[in-house]
Write a protein that binds this DNA or RNA. Structure first.
Length: 386
RNA sequence: GGGGAGGCGCCAAAGUUGGAGAGUUGGGGCGGACUGUAAAUCCGUUGGCUAAGCCUUAGGGGGUUCGAUUCCCUCCCUCCCCA
């Protein structure tokens, strides 16, 4: 089995657990820590592939097994030659398994030991997902990094439920791994498989889960089931605790996180990879992240503000347009607003992790992180009033 | 010039056989939320005040009535048809 993926460590921070490194895939190198834009349905909403590559400088993006299976379906994906060719994206792709939909579509699914039965949110039709079936779909998609099928538990989550769920996720992980080893990539490039640590906010369950998954052996390890409503400190504690049980030479991926400050805090706790819908979804809802804090672009106070959104940002929006213009586009419900804002937020996230990486390598990470978190987590206006 | 229809909140409409009205629906405005995307979505708010209450308010003015947004008179305005 020639599928092992390694995280090559370049530098470890001395004051924190932050790491800088890289991961090589057949579609190119990923420098870590990294943020991965979410492209659920084979598109990062409102951003072209050209822009993702040349302006955001995304190194890897996400796709979603559940959504791509429903539409366009594996037959089309296979005829297209896989998702890379279908969407004309030649850099790495990671696919989530549908485990998040177990959480987010909880009213439309039924869980059993064998798998999860979904009623399609599109047409109500029934579909049964098992670890084996999900691996098959991810082969059809051709993602560079495939995620195992897991159960993302909600918060709060009773201990007994969390334990049973974690145990099932571990049993599913075994089946995922077997299905992975018993199948082959379809398009000539290597595919890798990540396990997902569960256990809600219970440390003993997180430890068990991590140890069990490491025993099974994966190309990388994700921390799942967080950022589902628990306090940020609880998320940080859980991550901090969990990463101690994960191998140093494998990538660590915190699923679904998060706000810019969440990302920096979790880099400090030993995470290498992040994804989140927040930069794109919030962009479409007129909420912009900047190096000085966040901005609600629909607010009337920007009506006559002819300054740039973020003077420290090098994106197309910030180099060419004013807050007043962007606000006008949002108020007028113009599509360009969504495009410019999405581009900006993604560029901000990529710039943020790039800076984090530079500071880790320079040995100045912790100080920079602490200062940056204070600034970027505030509303820009209240920052100015300070 | 003649005939007809109609004017309610910031806007556009609904409704009211005379009694629930600061009150319906949509839009707009203002504010908030969003974390492995059922999301260009969702939520709150949107007359005033000395604020568990009170006041003002249905084109303007007047009248009938215990009671009028509703009925009558008059003036103003908008739209449609005819000349």
């Amino acid at each position: 089995m020639d599928c092992l993926l390694e995280l090559v460590l370049e530098k470890k921070d001395t004051n924190s657990k932050a790491r800088a490194g890289y991961i090589d895939t057949d579609h190119g190198r990923i420098q870590t820590p990294i943020f991965m834009p979410v492209g659920t349905q084979g598109t990062v909403k409102a951003v072209t592939q050209k822009s993702l590559k040349e302006e955001v400088e995304a190194q890897i993006i996400l796709g979603n097994t559940y959504h791509l299976y429903l539409r366009p379906g594996t037959e089309i994906l296979e005829k297209a030659g896989g998702l890379h060719k279908f969407m004309n994206w030649d850099k790495p792709i990671l696919t989530d398994s549908g485990g998040f939909q177990v959480y987010s579509l909880s009213e439309l699914r039924k869980l059993t030991e064998e798998g999860v039965k979904f009623r399609s949110h599109l047409d109500g039709s029934e579909h049964f997902f098992t670890p084996e079936k999900v691996i098959g779909i991810e082969r059809s998609i051709g993602s560079d990094i495939m995620m195992v099928l897991d159960e993302c538990t909600p918060y709060p989550c009773e201990y007994d439920y969390a334990k049973n769920s974690k145990d099932m996720t571990t049993r599913w992980a075994v089946r995922n791994k077997e299905a992975f080893e018993n199948s082959e990539p379809l398009y000539g490039h290597k595919q890798h498989l990540f396990g997902i640590v569960q256990g809600s906010v219970y440390k003993d369950l997180r430890e068990q889960s991590a140890r069990e998954l490491v025993d099974i052996g994966f190309d990388g390890y994700a921390v799942g089931g967080l950022a589902v409503g628990e306090p940020a400190e609880m998320m940080y504690d859980t991550v901090d605790f969990t990463t101690d049980f994960l191998p140093e030479d494998k990538p660590r991926y915190l699923m679904g996180v998060g706000r810019p400050e969440n990302i920096l805090e979790n880099i400090a706790r030993g995470i290498d990879m992040f994804d989140c819908v927040m930069p794109t979804r919030n962009a479409r809802n007129a909420y912009l992240f900047t190096s000085r804090g966040y901005l609600a672009m629909r607010n009337a106070r920007h009506k006559e503000d002819f300054t740039t959104v973020d003077p420290e940002c090098d994106c197309y929006l910030c180099k060419n347009f004013t807050k007043a213009y962007l606000r006008h586009l949002f108020i007028a419900n113009e599509i360009l607003a969504l495009q410019l804002a999405s581009l900006h937020n993604l560029r901000f996230y990529l710039n943020l992790v790039t800076k984090a990486r530079e500071h880790i390598i320079a040995g100045t990470f912790t100080e920079w992180k602490n200062e940056t978190v204070k600034i970027i987590s505030k509303n820009v206006n209240s920052t100015q009033e300070d």
